[in-house]
Design a protein around this nucleic acid. Structure first.
Length: 380
DNA sequence: CTAGGGTTAG
């Protein structure tokens, strides 16, 4: 192998020493730290918030807060969200809900709760929707054990009537805690209050039961749906696929594809991923490949999971050409890719002296890092 | 603008 290719392969996987120029950069220039860059972002965000049009862009709020949360800059999140309370929008419930949701997704449940408590003094009406946003904030912040308390306390104190969404959120919390039987008893509770479980309720339960390897109970939920005339959708089927794959019942998974098709549903990426995984488990590469092709034929988009299940298996079987093709497809969609898997493919291609392909993958890997796009002040 | 359900991880 040429030495320059070798060096490039090692650079991309980070196993070589930093280059001279990088060292110089770090020592002499003292690059702006991540925090100071984010601080800049915070200031820009607060300045932009003065514009009413900016405040209506909720996706910018979500992406900015998400970026700060993944950098663990929680005080910056507090900074930009508390700053929003001075605008008249805060008396619109939808805007307050946005802040509650953002705090919840950032794991800041106390802040979400405080926001909810402050709504009356901010002249903002509270309905069951903001109540539900607070319940969801418990779930999103993974403080699942807080849900029940918030539910009972607020129902008593504010005499808000919970609806299906409220119950579904509580049920989700119990599912996440693995308390599946409590989740079921909340379905009863909800029905005692005159509310019917809907498709979302059932899908939440199906997902939890099959995921916890309680296949027979999953089947019981499925039967309940039928008696209540709730029509399963592709998510219901995908939950069942997970159960079948876990139980290594590959042929039944194949039959399930046929079944959902007769019901007028279309399998999606998750369905195909399940089939691919099942055949990989069985060591059946031909069928795994066939289902990948079927996925492509159905105009589904292979994703991170497709990649992670299929590519290592292809490498194991020495099918580096197909592994290469799939890697290219995935990386062009800018999914962050596990570099250990990429390494397997590159090693295989190098072993087969397919240096051009190996180089191409390495180059793609270099540009594969996730890029954050944000256009602040784009509406000035 | 407004609340609830899917694989990873950003």
């Amino acid at each position: 192998m040429s030495s320059s290719l070798y060096r490039r392969l090692h650079n991309i996987f980070g196993t070589s020493l930093p280059t001279k120029s990088a060292q110089t950069c770090n020592t002499l220039k003292s690059l702006p730290t991540k925090e100071s860059k984010l601080k800049e972002l915070v200031d820009k965000f607060k300045k932009s918030s003065e514009l009413g049009k900016f405040r209506s862009k909720q996706d910018v709020y979500y992406s900015t807060v998400h970026r700060l949360a993944s950098a663990k800059q929680f005080s910056m999140i507090e900074d930009i969200l508390e700053d929003q309370k001075k605008y008249k929008d805060i008396s619109i419930e939808g805007f307050a809900i946005r802040l509650i949701t953002l705090y919840g997704k950032s794991g800041m449940l106390d802040h979400a709760h405080k926001m909810f408590d402050e709504m009356p003094e901010l002249q903002c009406e509270r309905t069951v929707k903001s109540f539900n946003a607070l319940l969801a904030a418990c779930v999103n912040s993974k403080k699942f054990d807080k849900v029940e308390g918030v539910f009972t306390e607020l129902r008593a104190k504010l005499s808000l009537e919970p609806n299906v969404v409220s119950y579904n959120t509580v049920i989700k919390a119990f599912c996440e805690m693995g308390s599946l039987d409590s989740a079921l008893s909340w379905v009863d509770e909800m029905e005692r209050n005159g509310l019917d479980a809907n498709l979302i309720t059932y899908n939440t339960l199906l997902d939890a039961f099959y995921r916890n390897n309680r296949f027979l109970d999953g089947e019981k939920i499925w039967a309940m749906m039928e008696t209540k005339n709730v029509v399963p959708d592709i998510r219901s089927y995908n939950a069942k696929f997970r159960g079948l794959v876990f139980e290594r019942r590959t042929s039944e998974a194949v039959e399930l594809i046929e079944e959902l098709r007769t019901k007028g549903l279309k399998p999606d990426v998750l369905s195909f991923n399940a089939l691919i995984k099942s055949f990989c488990n069985d060591g059946n590469i031909e069928e795994a490949k066939r289902w990948y092709k079927e996925l492509m034929k159905c105009k589904c988009v292979p994703n991170w999971v497709t990649f992670t299940t299929l590519v290592p298996f292809l490498c194991e079987k020495g099918e580096f050409d197909m592994a290469f093709k799939i890697c290219k497809k995935i990386m062009k969609r800018h999914y962050p890719v596990k570099k250990e898997i990429l390494q397997l493919v590159v090693d295989g291609l190098v072993k087969e002296s397919k240096l051009e392909e190996a180089t191409e993958l390495v180059e793609l890997g270099r540009s594969n890092s996730f890029r954050y796009k944000l256009e602040l002040c784009s509406d000035k």
